[in-house]
Design a protein around this nucleic acid. Sequence first.
DNA 1: CTCCTTATAGTAAACGTTTACTAATATTTA
DNA 2: TAAATATTAGTAAACGTTTACTATAAGGAG
Lengths: 338, 338
Amino acid sequence: MDKKATINDVAKVANVSIATVSRYLSNNGYPIKEQTKLSIKNAIEQLSYTPNIVGRMLKTNKSMDIGVIIPTILNPYYPAVIYGIEKKAYEKGYNILLCNSQRDANRQKQYVNTLIQKQVKGLIISSIGDDYLLYSDIVNKGIGLVSLEDEINLNKVGKVLFNYEKGAYMAVLHLLKLGHKKIAFLTSPLIRKSRRDILKGYINCLKDNNIAYNKVVEINEENEYENGALLGAKLLKEGDLPTAILAVNDMVAYGIMQYLTQNNISIPEDMSIVGFDDIKISKMMNPALTTIRQPSQKTGELAASMLFDILEGKESKKILLEPELVIRASTKKIRGEI
Amino acid sequence: MDKKATINDVAKVANVSIATVSRYLSNNGYPIKEQTKLSIKNAIEQLSYTPNIVGRMLKTNKSMDIGVIIPTILNPYYPAVIYGIEKKAYEKGYNILLCNSQRDANRQKQYVNTLIQKQVKGLIISSIGDDYLLYSDIVNKGIGLVSLEDEINLNKVGKVLFNYEKGAYMAVLHLLKLGHKKIAFLTSPLIRKSRRDILKGYINCLKDNNIAYNKVVEINEENEYENGALLGAKLLKEGDLPTAILAVNDMVAYGIMQYLTQNNISIPEDMSIVGFDDIKISKMMNPALTTIRQPSQKTGELAASMLFDILEGKESKKILLEPELVIRASTKKIRGEI
DNA sequence: CTCCTTATAGTAAACGTTTACTAATATTTA
DNA sequence: TAAATATTAGTAAACGTTTACTATAAGGAG
């Protein structure tokens, strides 16, 4: 296990100065004799030299990294977002430092800090949790920032948002049209703005249609899919069952569906259910899931493009993406309705 | 947008030397007067100083990064692996630099290079493609390496492998027991060792059971799910249909299932299908997918543990994980069989 | 042939840290 | 009270690069 070779070693072997080697590597048009080039090339090969980007970054302060913080990688929605980000980043020659906050505020703060220490040029964050100071600290350090959820009042911050409230409204309206009068909202902890927005849409739609029944079942874990079972159990225990469910996202919906099915409640015969996200596999579920489509990959691409715009000095903007209702087999007219 | 503060600025404001600030930050027991500590603390706050890890790394050569290269983030199998890796890495204080090779050899090589330049301490790679030189170059640079697929003959490389061949054998055997005599293998390009191993298991099982019929349908794209439709189409066009299908992985199986269903071939009535991976949602599919379970998260955890062992100077090992057949609803006795 | 330019290469400072030395006090020990 | 030690802090070199300056030689313009 040899020690890694440095530019000094290369210079020594090639019998030139390190400046020349550096110029050879940067390949920026500075004239170098062919013969010199050749001997440097040989030296590099012989030593299997790889430039140390740390040394370079220190000198040039030109990192080509951006940080991305998402809540969890286990919900396929986020990999799709990342895919979009990565696509744009790769085009621009940027690398991504990916962090999972696991929806833990401390862990997130820790990651933001680490990323700043690593001198990322920009940051794309899915929910920082309305921590104004953290946001402003980032932009004050000259780091580009795009938020995927919080509509923070800081004009230096780019925003790619989704109209969660409207999405929920559409979902509930769909269920009402199918004749459902008892609709419950089953959700992971309401600590994120997006979830609270969904709650708003749910409540508003019921109110607008003069429906008294409302039932919000919240769990205090953060395990998406596994939470489905917990939510299902809690729902059954509480009694006064709804005839339809709005789930906070597709993964949770799957968990609920599985739990209910195991407990002899069949979907959609006994219970309609609407998800949220429309992740790729949702059309293949059993039954295929009615859901609110959120354009995941596009969100990633837009966020990345916006970040690079910001890094190039352009104005930061705000984009609000609109929901789309995708009707599949997990919802049907309520029993007895024609 | 202020310039970022450095340790020099802090020292100046706190009216101490940079050495003292550095000692304060490293918090390693070197004695510092309480009063001095206080003024440094204040200075740091006032300047909202964040240490520059690049400077530190250059000096100490102690990066806390490991690189992870996976083929794609869109197949949920890999996020589960990453989750396992991250879990262990977080415990050890390591950060992960995640790269998607998109199953492109050049892109992968490029990423390996970038990661080396970034001075990662270790690398976990899912298939480097039998490039012995690339492997040995990595270990020769003193970088820890764990391979998730290639059984490269280099004892410095840790290996967490899966018995793909046996898994395929089990899958085919299951189908044979259900009375199927015409079983096809539908696969993405056979450029990866894992896929070729699955092919081996498929062929061997047929041979061992004196089945003449075999049909390998291969597509030359790398889009997993979308490939399902292409594979389905190719299968139908070729004629001499099988009664059962082994798919190279779950995602591809879903794509095939969807295509066939759309073309009035119902599963499992007209066609049985077995997947490979058992990603989390497979039990929720329509119909629930019979598949070969591969312990994704555990793979990640084992790989990370092994890497850290290697970094601590322990011997590198090889672990071979065994498959498990999970029988669900996508396979059934062939028509006419009792 | 002198002066200017071009091609080529080297010198040394700088980037933000850490840390081995050194130095100055304060405290203990004999 | 002198010597030894502990406490506290500063100086400067080093990590691997890049790059502004400087230097040399060679070729052209006048």
